[in-house]
Computed example of a mutant assay.
Amino acid sequence: MDPRSPPPGDGRLTPADLRLWAVLGLALVFLALAALFLAAPALGALIYGVPAPEGIGRTALRAIGARDAALALYLAGLALFSTRRAVAIVLAASLVIPACDLVLILSAGTAAWWQVALHGVSAGVLALTALWLARRNHSA
């Protein structure tokens, strides 16, 4: 067996595999969030759970947009050109994002319950998708 090839049962996602479309859907969601934070930072702040800052503070919101765009591109690129194991690892590692976001908005004390829930749901979706991809048997 060639050491550069993916291990058996851990190959690439194919168009027939629902997991490919789930990951591409997640990538699309993160790309839409990125566009929102880059184009309308005040609305992004509302969704994120912090007051909309003025001036240079908007730069931090746009940085969130850039982060989300990068995550979308990582996920799409890996889903299309790498192994499902690689996608699962990146999704699992990406749990740092909603975890840190939760800490930040909770420490700010400005988030409504639905904003906290949104970050919690985000973490749950990333974790469940990573676990789904990590399973050798891809049945739902």
Rank of each mutant, 00 (worst) to 15 (best):
G49D: 05
Y48P: 01
L31S: 13
A60S: 15
L75E: 06
T83I: 00
I64H: 11
V29K: 06
G109A: 09
A32V: 15
D10C: 13
P15F: 12
G65D: 11
G25I: 05
A42L: 07
D10Y: 02
S82A: 15
A112R: 15
V103I: 15
A76M: 01
P15Y: 06
Q115F: 01
L102G: 03
A99I: 13
A92Y: 10
A45C: 08
A79R: 11
A69C: 10
L33I: 04
E54A: 14
V29R: 05
A112P: 11
V50M: 11
A39G: 09
G25Y: 12
G25M: 02
A86P: 04
A86V: 14
A27T: 01
A39H: 04
S82L: 10
R62Y: 02
F37E: 07
L73V: 15
L24G: 05
A76Q: 07
P51M: 06
L75N: 05
Y74L: 15
I47Y: 10
L61C: 02
G25P: 09
T110K: 05
D10V: 07
L43C: 01
A88E: 01
L75D: 03
I89G: 00
C100H: 14
A16H: 10
A76G: 13
A72S: 13
A79E: 07
I105S: 00
P53T: 07
V90Y: 06
G49L: 02
Q115R: 04
A79Y: 14
A111C: 04
Y48A: 00
V87Y: 11
G55Q: 11
L106F: 00
A22Q: 14
R67C: 03
P15V: 07
A40E: 10
L118W: 03
P41Q: 11
A22I: 09
A32L: 14
L71Q: 02
V87A: 15
L20C: 10
